[in-house]
Write a protein that binds this DNA or RNA. Structure first.
Lengths: 355, 355
DNA sequence: AATTAGCACTCGACTCAATAGAGTGCTAAC
DNA sequence: GTTAGCACTCTATTGAGTCGAGTGCTAATT
């Protein structure tokens, strides 16, 4: 059956109302609040149709209707009006992004904080695993006698370090030499291209007998591992407790525990990243994680060239203010991109050259 | 009135039971479960005494008794039996600590995770503000043309970095020179002793006209600011939702929001740090933060010489398994100290020399 | 043919009284 | 000093009764 104009208007009215009130919407409410020029009886009939088509559901025989996942999907794709951010909201995004930050993960973290504050839902941010990172610099920094700091920087703005012990007899000049060799041989490589042959090469240049090779190599490995285990930042999870959906302790606990299992969130983000849209909306049961079947997730990814360097997502109840979140996401996207460009300077060009 | 032996035994029985069950304890329960050789009537009389003395309280006229803060305090100080960790628990602490970690905040973070897992309460970890930190090394690391990384390392094992833009014309040799000057002049200073005269001195050596001074100085300042804003790590906050004390959404939300205001937690830790005990127990109303008046907090601080470098705390309901938490804290303390010694090498000696 | 008024019916939410049960305090007996 | 016994208190639970929002269907209206 085709959704005629009147049905669409009624569906939209119901979903708009339900997003605001979280109460099942009855025919009389629709007739009263929205000037459709129809009596409640007519609307009642239309609602029965919409339910049969799967856009609405009824919690109990004698209650009003609530939107189904299919209903929300139609709403998001075709019905809802795009909303605009207030001046204050735009300001808070701008000012959060414009504060000097020089590490990517910090930037995303802060973006996530602002998103949860504006939307009043939970939000998350993550940097992807190592597979795509290109090393920009590897340096060995002297700290004190017997200690050196290994620093690894990637093109995506990730900076990691690792403190290692080295023989006290090593001279500063030697450290510089080793540092240069490592830097020379490793920079420009993606992480998964650092393999035994490359290390052999370094070994040859330094001299395998040198007792400084091993600690430095350990430090580099440690840094790379840190880059690999992409952390997920969460913010505003407690916001969710303000919604009637989570007014029951059992539900609330379930949700918060879910948020605590970072592996799962990573999986969520991975699944979504594989899609190609700028902004991605996953509604309720569309989510592959069953535990999330009554949440909706809106995500966006940030890239440098073709390399994904970060993801930000907002998690709310399926009854989410989709248009508001989309507006915030959109603006944030713009600002984060501006900031990333500042952060990485001309790196985009560099990468293209390497191809 | 003095607490005779029998009163003590009854008080202990009640508190032990209440910690387990979270239900008010009646006289009959005490008589039945604990072989005191007394009838419920006698125990009833003793309980009335204990209530009058302030060790017990009665939620309603006709209910059993629950311990008061004063009761818990007496229990903790004099009554409770020390408990021992299981082999598994000790193993999980050991293995968490023995994994190679080279930054202090990482170490504390992981310790906090393990504590919340073992105790099933919430836990927090924090590094203190800058006031006590001594700079161990300051280095300028070349990254690529036009970019340099400033790295600052303190004696407490804190490592911070900041990426800055420098003029593209700066030669690598110049960077090394600048790096050496900064390192020479700043290392060994506590952060609050870095002042204008010191900076003037550096300025003189580099030459105030040099366009590299300012960016590096900015980077150093940024690092120091990062050290200053001591972050608080939280873990296992959702554990608390498993306890009947938080079975009400409003209470749960209150608590979680409290945990989200890091400034408050910092205040809690600061207050407690000023006490001199190894392990510190704050029970319910003893806490200065009113919102925490039905939580108990057990904390311990870690020091290097006389400098506090970290705090770990466990937060639970006042009805907390004090002895278990204490046992875990104790063991963790030992292991963290071992690890800190490895991490900082001979730094303790160094500091003493400087005095 | 579409819309609407009207009405019987459903079902959750709320109120209120009754009841059960755990526990107390007090008195009198041991 | 201890204990058995009893009247009393207070909460939690249960079940009946009521209210109200909302539905689906039918018949009247446009």
């Amino acid at each position: 059956m085709f959704l005629d104009d009147r049905k669409k208007r009624i569906l939209q009215a119901i979903i708009d109302d339900y997003i605001n009130t979280a109460e099942p919407i009855g025919s009389r409410t629709v007739a009263r609040k929205h000037e459709l020029g129809l009596s409640s009886a007519t609307i009642r009939n239309e609602m029965a149709d919409l339910e049969e088509m799967g856009y609405l559901a009824q919690p109990h025989t004698s209650s009003g209707r609530i939107p189904s996942d299919k209903g929300y999907r139609f709403y998001v794709d075709q019905l809802m009006k795009s909303s605009e951010l207030t001046v204050e909201e735009m300001y808070s995004i701008r000012s959060a992004m414009e504060t000097r930050i020089n590490e990517l993960s910090q930037l995303l973290k802060r973006a996530s904080v602002v998103m949860s504050k504006i939307t009043r839902y939970a939000s998350m941010a993550a940097t992807p695993g190592k597979q795509n990172s290109v090393l920009k610099a590897v340096q060995v920094v002297p700290v004190e006698k017997g200690k050196a700091l290994i620093v690894v920087i990637t093109n995506a703005g990730i900076i990691k370090n690792s403190l290692v012990s080295i023989p006290e007899t090593v001279l500063p000049e030697c450290l510089i030499k080793v540092s240069n060799i490592f830097n020379e041989k490793l920079k420009g490589l993606t992480i998964d291209r650092i393999n035994l042959p490359v290390i052999r090469e370094i070994e040859l240049l330094i001299g395998s007998t040198s007792d400084i090779l091993l600690p430095v190599l350990n430090g580099v490995t440690d840094c790379i591992n840190q880059i690999d285990c992409s952390e997920v930042y969460l913010d505003g999870t407690t916001n969710m407790l303000n919604y009637p959906e989570f007014n029951d302790v059992v539900r609330a606990r379930e949700f918060l525990n879910l948020m605590d299992t970072k592996e799962l969130l990573n999986k969520v983000l991975d699944d979504i990243n594989n899609s190609s849209n700028y902004i991605n909306i996953t509604i309720g049961g569309e989510n592959k994680i069953v535990e999330m079947r009554d949440c909706s997730i809106i995500t966006t990814t940030y890239s440098l060239g073709e390399i994904v360097i970060g993801t930000i997502g907002v998690i709310g109840p399926t009854r989410m203010e989709y248009s508001k979140v989309l507006a915030a996401m959109d603006y944030m996207r713009k600002k984060v991109n501006e900031e990333i460009n500042k952060l990485t300077g001309k790196s985009t060009k560099d990468i293209k050259k390497n191809k």
